[in-house]
């Protein structure tokens, strides 16, 4: 016991004396990618979830608590997306810096307008989020707003490198705006196309590219579809010309596959976030790949 305790203290000291860079823990990989764009090698960032995990569902695992314990900055989506595990993670971390609204606490959805804020809060409507739909990272315009707020956060946290963060943000803004323009041009043909998605994860993406969401495979958020719901979807998709069905790499694919095979509508697995598909390593390639995959599917 005692030896272990001493060992732990020693490890603790050696870890806390080397503090050249900001330790960042993000809840989702898109924010890890964003903070790396904005801070380069001034941060040591890790993400609590990977692109293949459902951010609603994971548990406050010991490894995550250990990471939260040492984080200087916590970047998450917020808006109750991580309601099942983040409050617990923060509480168990024993880290004053990342407590709600402390200096190292950053929720992306605090800095943009949210869509789909429910008028009635009732769980009969499924696992809805009181603040609105939290999947904001699929709108590049909102990413830019979040980036701006995050750059300010970084400047406040690490004053020594303040100009560095400012420059990096300006550089990112330039590249990002160019990319947005490029994506919008490329995706122009997708405008007004009818789509079906698994979960309401893409509403910001749809809104940006003006896609037309016919229905979601889940009748209600967080509740897998029943056979009745699937039958209804078949009817619906034969009545309206649905061009493509898409779902996140992490979601339950079987019902989407079944629906696609019954209706002959192309099914596309989109990355949803960084790391969702193998070749998606950053925010730029996330949008590149998503648009390319949709164009491919609709051109057939």
């Amino acid at each position: 016991m005692k030896q272990l305790f001493l060992l732990a203290i020693l490890l603790g000291f050696s870890a806390s004396t080397i503090k050249a860079e900001l330790r960042v823990l993000t809840c989702e990989p898109e924010w890890k990618s964003l903070v790396e764009e904005l801070a380069g090698d001034k941060v040591n960032a890790s993400s609590a979830t990977t692109g293949k995990q459902d951010p609603h569902r994971i548990q406050a695992r010991p490894s995550l608590i250990a990471k939260a314990r040492r984080a200087d900055l916590l970047i998450c989506t917020g808006a109750d997306l991580e309601a099942g595990w983040l409050p617990l993670l923060i509480r168990k971390s024993g880290n004053a810096d990342i407590q709600p609204y402390a200096k190292g606490y950053f929720m992306a959805t605090d800095h943009v307008l949210l869509m789909e804020k429910p008028e009635v809060l009732d769980r009969s409507q499924g696992d809805i989020h009181a603040a609105g739909n939290p999947h904001v990272h699929l709108d590049p315009r909102r990413i830019l707003e979040i980036a701006k707020a995050l750059a300010e956060k970084l400047q406040a946290l690490d004053i020594d490198n303040s100009t560095y963060y400012q420059e990096r943000y300006q550089d990112f803004e330039l590249r990002w705006n160019k990319a947005i323009e490029h994506w919008q041009q490329k995706a122009a043909t997708l405008k007004n196309k009818n789509i079906i998605t698994y979960h309401r994860s893409w509403i910001y993406f749809q809104d940006w590219l003006q896609l037309n969401l016919i229905s979601t495979i889940e009748a209600k958020p967080g509740i897998p579809p029943s056979s009745g719901q699937l039958a209804k979807l078949i009817k619906q998709s034969s009545a309206t010309e649905v061009e493509v069905i898409f779902h996140a790499a992490y979601s339950h694919a079987k019902s989407a596959e079944w629906l696609a095979s019954k209706t002959n509508i192309p099914l596309v697995t989109l990355p949803y976030t960084v790391g969702g598909l193998d070749n998606v390593n950053d925010l730029f390639s996330m949008f590149d790949t998503s648009i390319n995959l949709l164009l491919e599917a609709t051109n057939k």
Partner: peptide
Amino acid sequence: WLAPTDLYTLV
């Protein structure tokens, strides 16, 4: 006390 290690260590 949670140790500042990558290995979760709680006493």
